[in-house]
Design a protein around this nucleic acid. Structure first.
Lengths: 208, 208
DNA sequence: CCGTTAACTAAATGGTTAGTTAAAATTTTA
DNA sequence: TAAAATTTTAACTAACCATTTAGTTAACGG
């Protein structure tokens, strides 16, 4: 392996490991020493390649948002009708958040911190996602398949329910242990089931 | 002022101040010295009355959950029909989260941390809230005013949308600055408007 | 094969922070 | 008023932790 490739691999494993740590413990709670240990590199290597804790965090956030946004946009654009696009939006959001377990915790911590550590580029990705769902709802409104609803509210329903479902898994486990199995708790094993239920529920609210 | 009252006041100001700090910075990010300074008490007073950082955090979480839950249950129980109860649930949840700005950040950070620092009593309050909404939805299903939907999913929509709206305010401000005023961003000045819109949206999905 | 340079490391540095302590001051109680 | 509870003061410590520094290793180009 040549120098450039090995370098990229190192940066990649650092970012992957840091993503988990920042998601589980937050910016303040994560430890550079532990990230380095779990990534199998020396602490100074992180400083050499990426920079200090803040820059590492920004890089982690940016990469995660970039991946999610690119996939979301391309999946939605591939569809024609407003309803298909809406379903693709929900489905892809569910896939993104379930494949990358860190995404929801990262975003929720950012919201809790007043979005103070989101890098500029991260904001751009959020705008792209918002624009996509707004355009989809507008398309549906114009062709009569959707009611005239507040797009911001609809987006809140999508993002809120999926993020809370994803990040809420450990809490649900604790509650289940406390309540017994007969308590009707939400639990999906497949992405498509959750995405379908959310789509169905929200489309019921969106349709005239 | 007698001894008990004065003591309660001291504990109260400590808990209030700590609530803000933990919400804004998280358990790891909050500083005992800063909490003491902002509360206007000596650091040793916190240890005298409450204990260490973890105990302070648990007390903060417990008190916040207790307040919210008590208000929620009493407001819902005062109503008769399923739809009235549903609206009261949403309305009270909105009021709770907007009057106590710390509640949503505290809960979102907990979810992100795998609910690891929620005290036992806090879990009990969550169960009470869940039970309330489940019973309300069941009541509506039986008398034919609601469809047969997954109660867990419905709760996810309520709690997700309200929490993301509440905690998302700083992010919305940043996005507004980035996008210009013509971008259709959700912004309510009154509790009742947000609660009404969410109720209307969800009732549209719940009704047969 | 050799000098250069990117990649990496081990160890040190220095600031930060949770928690403690002991004595004194203040307030409340009885 | 004496005892008890509360709070302050302020110094202290032991651990923690981000960042730096000085040095090592090995790939690369010529």
């Amino acid at each position: 392996m040549n120098r450039a490739e090995s370098s990229l691999d190192t940066i990649d494993i650092i970012l992957r490991t840091a993503t988990e740590h920042f998601a589980e413990r937050g910016l303040a709670g994560a430890r550079i020493d532990e990230i380095a240990r779990d990534a199998g590199v020396n602490k100074a290597t992180i400083y050499y390649h990426i920079g200090g804790k803040d820059e590492l965090y920004a890089a982690v956030f940016r990469e995660n948002m970039r991946n999610s946004t690119e996939r979301l946009l391309s999946n939605v654009e591939a569809k024609q009708t407003a309803e298909e696009k809406f379903k693709a939006y929900v489905q892809t959001m569910v896939e993104n958040l379930r494949e990358n377990k860190a995404a929801a915790p990262l975003m929720m911590r950012e919201l809790a911190s007043g979005a103070e550590n989101i890098p500029q580029e991260g904001l751009q990705y959020i705008v792209k996602m918002l624009t996509t769902i707004i355009q989809t709802l507008e398309q549906g409104r114009q062709d009569g398949s959707f009611r005239d609803t507040n797009p911001g509210l609809t987006h809140l329903m999508i993002i809120g329910s999926i993020m809370f479902y994803t990040a809420g898994e450990p809490l649900r486990k604790k509650l289940m242990g406390l309540m017994g199995a007969d308590f009707p708790m939400l639990e999906y094993t497949k992405d498509c089931d959750l995405a379908r239920d959310i789509s169905d529920f929200l489309l019921h609210a969106l349709k005239p």
